[in-house]
């Protein structure tokens, strides 16, 4: 997917206002469990991180009221969510709209292009970001990997979630309107 970098991909204001800061709290334990379970099923997905599996990544979706602290240490992985004011010390900070960050995670968007166009920002230990980016790229993660699903349920979940994300990106950037007009 080629995303117009000049289009704002942030969630609309009404959705952002609807979400309180504590709404991210349940995600921490759920994502911790999902990452550890992924490491058990696909240990190779974490190998490319090398020494950076112990690095502390702060992921800040700029259009959500909470942030993620992630230590992608395979079976000892940790994900912790806090409000914007609760940032813990970190090696790396990655900031951007949530739909773009998820696009990098599922491999549908190019992280370098988003960085060049300043749609996302990165600071801290660049080598850890590069290792994380390359590990995510090669892992070809699907939503079903994180949810621990298999078979037809996995296929259904993947197509539903990825299709939904793609549509959401088109809606917030206005691309769906242009495509409809063009056709």
């Amino acid at each position: 997917m080629v995303l117009d970098p000049n289009k704002d991909a942030s969630l609309p204001e009404p959705i952002r206002r609807f979400l309180p800061a504590f709404s991210g709290r349940p995600l921490g334990p759920l994502l911790t469990q999902a990452m550890r379970s992924l490491a058990q099923r696909r240990p190779e997905a974490f190998e490319r991180l090398g020494e950076f599996c112990k690095a502390h990544f702060l992921i800040d979706p700029t259009d959500l009221p909470f942030i993620f602290h992630v230590v992608p240490d395979g079976r000892a992985a940790l994900v912790h969510t806090t409000g914007k004011n609760g940032a813990l010390p970190s090696d790396v900070v990655i900031r951007g709209p949530i739909l773009l960050l998820l696009g990098i995670l599922d491999g549908s968007l190019d992280g370098d292009a988003l960085f060049f166009h300043r749609a996302i920002s990165v600071s801290g230990r660049t080598e850890a970001v590069v290792a994380l980016r390359n590990a995510i790229e090669d892992a070809e993660l699907r939503p079903s990997d994180l949810l621990g699903l298999g078979g037809n349920v996995a296929r259904f979940a993947d197509s539903g979630i990825l299709g939904g994300l793609s549509l959401a990106r088109q809606i917030v950037t206005g691309t769906h309107r242009r495509e409809r007009t063009d056709s």
Binding site: G107, D110, A113, E137, E140
Partner: peptide
């Protein structure tokens, strides 16, 4: 070679 899969595909 240092770019991602999204870049390669497009």
């Amino acid at each position: 070679r240092q770019r991602g899969k999204g870049y390669v595909t497009e």
